[in-house]
Amino acid sequence: MKLKTKLYKEQLKEWPQTGRHIMAQFDEEKVIVYQSYRPEIGHFAAKNQFFGGAFSLSRMTWIKPNFLWMMYRNGWGTKEGQEVVLAIHLKRDVFERYLDKAIYSSYQPNIYKDREEWQEAVKNSNIRLQWDPDHDPYGAKLERRAIQLGIRNEDIEKYAKDDILEIEDISEFVKEQYQHVLNNKLDNLIIPEERPFVPKSKTTYHQLKLSGI
Rank of each mutant, 00 (worst) to 15 (best):
E116Y: 10
K101V: 08
W69D: 09
I88S: 00
M23Q: 10
P16S: 01
G52F: 09
F55H: 12
V31I: 15
L90W: 02
Q108T: 08
I32S: 01
S125E: 00
K91A: 05
K200D: 11
M70D: 07
L90H: 08
R144A: 08
A54V: 08
Y37K: 05
P133N: 14
A102T: 08
T61F: 02
L210E: 02
Q35A: 02
T18C: 01
I22T: 09
E96Y: 09
Q17M: 13
P109G: 01
Q148D: 06
F51A: 04
H135V: 15
I164T: 01
I147Y: 01
I164H: 03
W131M: 11
D169N: 15
D114Y: 04
R128Y: 13
Q148K: 13
I167Y: 01
F197H: 13
A102L: 06
L129F: 03
K113R: 15
S58M: 13
T203C: 00
Q148H: 09
M70Y: 03
R38M: 12
D155W: 06
M60D: 01
E96S: 04
N184L: 13
K79M: 13
D27M: 07
F51L: 12
H43M: 11
I191W: 04
P196L: 12
Y138H: 14
S36F: 03
N126M: 03
R145G: 04
E143Q: 12
Q49D: 04
A46L: 07
I191T: 08
T203F: 11
K64E: 05
K158H: 13
Q119P: 05
W69V: 06
E80F: 06
D187Y: 13
E193V: 02
R144Y: 09
T78I: 03
G42S: 10
T78A: 07
N183I: 05
G139R: 03
N183L: 15
E143D: 06
K202W: 01
I103E: 00
E143R: 01
E80W: 12
G150M: 08
P109A: 01
G77F: 07
K91M: 11
W76K: 08
E194G: 03
Q177Y: 02
L3N: 14
D114V: 10
I111W: 07
R115Q: 14
A24L: 02
L90K: 05
L7M: 11
V84C: 02
K101D: 13
G212R: 04
N48P: 03
G52C: 10
S106F: 14
V198E: 02
Y178F: 15
A45G: 10
K185F: 05
L99K: 04
P196K: 11
L7I: 10
A140S: 01
R115Y: 10
